[in-house]
Design a protein around this nucleic acid. Structure first.
Lengths: 341, 341
DNA sequence: GTGAAAGCGCTAACAT
DNA sequence: ATGTTAGCGCTTTCAC
């Protein structure tokens, strides 16, 4: 910057101000500075700038499982909003494990991120979140809600799970199994609650043998579903509570040579862009990932910019996509194939 | 750090050295420092550290389309390797557009990233790459190869596309259409070359009407395939050259009420974790995304650490997954369904 | 084994 | 409209 100033015959302060547009500069002067910048191919050093200004224009994002296409889309939505606002994204994967989550968020704090978006692992509230809060770094929780005075955005879980389950009940099913996700996070609990409530409302008792812990994992879900479906205890319907476990469940069913919906009615939480291409086509509750990601970024930017409202907790509604894996009357009666979205 | 030093009764210099393990410190002293750190809840400021040390321990990754699940996995593999090595990932999406790519990489350079991984958009070699090279920042290209003296990692394209096409030819097809990707990037060109070479080797002429420009996009591919398949010019087989276009193609075929492989034999470049669940199950060339990502990170780390070897260009082989969308004899003769992987 | 001090490249308050 | 300058919080050389 010194060099630019010398060549342009001005002070570094002026150079800084033309660079940042932070005060009026005589057009002629500005041109001289711009010319000097081009001449020596000067690039600003954002690290030095951050140190001096006390802001990094950087946001940290801690995601729990980057391999899940759901989180891929989430990252995309967040990144897009942030980059529009002039922020840059530092991305890390917590593997849904409190210790690596803590290491990650700690490193983000050390890097002086202006804010942080976190898909909290089970147990976060006692380990990593307090540390973040103590640092004063603006924080928004995403995907999993916690009982904390903190901005958070997540999908509607309970009502959607209720709807999925009720749909099966209305089609006459009484033995409805569930594959639920990772223990200890709100999405698992809430979706399970929706399932249980739907059963209760129809006077169907919870059967513990029909509750499978799929741990949000393809292989685990596959194993449990295979086991259940080859036992004498076969349910007539199954609801899977996230996309990974849906894949596992479908693999299990296929391996056993069973057919959906003839041998088993199936519905799931989480949709796929290519759900229409699966066989069977999946009846699913679709999250609005785009909105969730965008909203999280917006909340965070507000917080960073210091609008000090009270913490907001936002639920984004899901869409019920009725296709034919549920095997219900409405479908078999002839709803046409592959409604384009 | 001053505070820590004062409380521990040492100099900042000593504090710095215990923090970084950069020189021998008397165990007693070290303990006093550690205690002081805990006492005041000190966190190192990595921004200041970066400025002073001239390293940021940061790597930039510019991806062309985060929504594509392929790139999601790639990001995951890269992030994993980097975090093991103590680096942090700054992620951006170029939308496969040279101008936003240049803005992104510029911002990464300003932020003094220690290195950069780039999935170059078409036209990068004349705009953004020279700028990066000029800055002296270590660079590795990923997914798309360029004729440049620069580390790069990508999948085997030509041979795999050849194999896919040859497979259809061997099954007796002569009118084989192709949906190719974004113009101007090596993966598109090389995969097309493989296709063309296979046809040539069997004495089949290229038919321009069977060459569809899907632009690596679901909707574009869908439109072109629908058009072609409803014309009088229908091919007997189709090869799709990436995952997005595969989805588009399958949607088109389904919309027309046609069936694969009966009405159209189908093979594709890029596999899905859930390919077995599609109907039809896809015969596909699967990239080893994990290896590609890990290799890119390794090359970059080598470069950053200053091992100044000559640039390496690495091709990662694909796996041919034979399922039943190709409708070839081997399959119809009775290869069992859903081979688990 | 430890400390003093000179930067790293900027921003912004204060002057003019 | 522009310039001077004191930091921002560290690392690292040099000295002891």
């Amino acid at each position: 910057m010194d060099d630019v100033a010398r060549i342009a015959g001005v002070s570094v302060s002026t150079v800084s101000h033309v660079l940042n547009g932070t005060r009026n500069v005589n057009p002629t002067t500005r041109q001289r500075v711009d010319a000097a910048i081009v001449e020596i191919g000067y690039r600003r050093n954002v690290v030095a700038r951050s140190l001096a200004a006390g802001r990094t224009n950087t946001v940290g994002l801690s995601i729990s499982a980057l391999t899940n296409p759901y989180f891929g889309s989430l990252v995309h939505a967040v990144e897009q909003r942030l980059s529009e606002a002039g922020y840059v994204l530092i991305l890390g994967d917590s593997h849904d494990e409190p210790t690596s989550e803590k290491r990650l968020t700690g490193s983000l704090l050390d890097r002086q991120v202006d804010g942080m978006i976190l898909a909290p692992a089970a147990g976060s509230e006692s380990t990593t979140i307090p540390e973040i809060v103590r640092s004063g770094t603006p924080l928004v929780l995403i995907d999993r809600m916690l009982d904390l005075p903190c901005d958070q955005v997540g999908p509607e879980n309970d009502a959607s799970a209720y709807e999925l389950t009720a749909h099966l009940l209305d089609a006459g099913h009484r033995r409805i199994a569930i594959v639920r996700g990772i223990e200890g996070i709100s999405s698992t609990t809430e979706r399970f609650d929706g399932y249980a409530r739907a059963l209760a409302d129809r006077g169907v008792d919870l059967d513990p043998r029909l509750i499978l812990d799929g741990r949000s994992n393809v292989e685990v879900a596959e194993m449990h579903v295979r086991e259940l479906m080859s036992s004498s205890n076969r349910p007539s319907a199954l609801v899977s509570m996230n996309n990974s476990m849906t894949i596992g469940s479908l693999k299990a069913v296929r391996t056993l040579g069973l057919s959906i919906p003839d041998d088993l009615a199936f519905v799931c939480y989480d949709d796929f862009e290519w759900s229409d291409l699966f066989e069977p086509r999946l009846t699913a509750a679709a999250q609005d990932v785009q909105t969730i990601g965008r909203t999280a970024a917006d909340l965070l930017l507000n917080r960073i910019e210091g609008r000090d409202d009270k913490p907001r907790s936002i639920r984004v509604p899901t869409t019920f996509n009725h296709r034919n894996s549920c095997g219900c009357a409405a479908t078999s009666a002839g709803i046409p194939a592959a409604p384009e979205r």
